[in-house]
């Protein structure tokens, strides 16, 4: 792998309304500096892909956005969301995570029924109204394109579903909380092509209601679904632009080489 000047970067200015942004974000694992000065703005109701080789820091960055790195890593810098710095110590992280949901690489449904998987978060937050819960159950499952497959077996264990169904259940579980942002960490990398395309269709639908930030290894996936793409290299955001620009005509040599498959 060639060495690139990592201080050089090309970051697009976003004209649309911004949902969340990070300002000079640094992440440290002990003494290991994992993310350097990440300054990114994510447009509302659009899909942004984070791409880069393994170890480039894209997942670390994503997990910092809803404070999942608390207790694991030290995160410095600002994360601005609705006018507040949600990376500040005094911020209620539980509230942050309710508004910024997350779906992980491997499907991780709870060992509970399908119904309980969706409703557990809401019930834990004090929602008791039966009608409201039933409505959330149906809407979330429909939005995650899982309703038709499971509507007759809502009380079956979520673990009896296939991997692709489990992952869509996890998406439904997140959106049941009615978040504004959905973070996805390689949500389709453990799935077969058919399940993957279902997830992609689902995400394309979901962006009408949610702002989506997705980490992916799969470059054609990034081109298929995302409006913007950020390229990470060795902890630096090297290039951030419209997805079409990144893949058709990248500015930075590192981006061009990564997309051409020179490393990864």
């Amino acid at each position: 792998m060639k060495t690139y000047n990592l201080e050089d970067k090309s970051i697009v200015t976003i004209e649309d309304e911004i949902e969340i942004s990070s300002d000079n974000l640094q992440v440290y694992y002990g003494d290991n500096h994992a993310i350097f000065d990440a300054t990114l703005k994510f447009p509302k109701n659009q899909i942004t892909s984070l791409i880069g080789a393994s170890g480039s820091g894209k997942s670390t960055y994503l997990r910092s956005l809803n404070r999942m790195n608390d207790k694991i890593a030290r995160v410095e810098g600002k994360i601005m969301y609705q006018g507040t710095d949600i990376n500040a110590k005094k911020v209620n992280v539980y509230e942050v995570r309710k508004q910024i949901g997350m779906v992980f690489q491997r499907p991780n449904p709870f060992a509970k029924s399908i119904r309980e998987n969706i409703l557990f978060g809401l019930k834990s937050n004090g929602f008791k109204d039966k009608e409201f819960l039933e409505e959330r159950l149906e809407t979330s499952l429909k939005e995650a394109a899982l309703w038709d497959e499971v509507k007759d077996e809502l009380d079956k264990s979520a673990l009896s579903l296939s991997g692709g169904q489990q992952q869509r259940l996890c998406i439904a579980r997140s959106i049941a909380m009615q978040p504004n942002i959905l973070l996805l960490d390689e949500p389709a990398s453990a799935l077969d092509p058919i399940s993957t395309s279902k997830i992609e269709d689902t995400l394309t639908e979901l962006k009408q209601k949610y702002t989506i930030i997705i980490v992916t290894h799969n470059m054609s996936q990034a081109t298929r679904i995302s409006n913007y793409t950020a390229f990470f290299h060795l902890g630096h955001v090297v290039e951030y632009d419209k997805t079409s620009k990144i893949f058709m005509n990248p500015t930075m040599p590192a981006t061009a080489d990564y997309i051409a498959g020179a490393f990864g």
Binding site: N66, M68, V93, Y94, E95, V96, R97, K98, G101, M102, V103, F104, R106, N108, P109, F110, A111, F120, G121, S124, N125, C170, R173, S174, M177
Partner: peptide, 17 residues
Amino acid sequence: SDLQKQAGMSLGLSDWR
């Protein structure tokens, strides 16, 4: 699995719950 704990965290649940 740690994934279960992460799932709970990502829904804004307390550690205890």
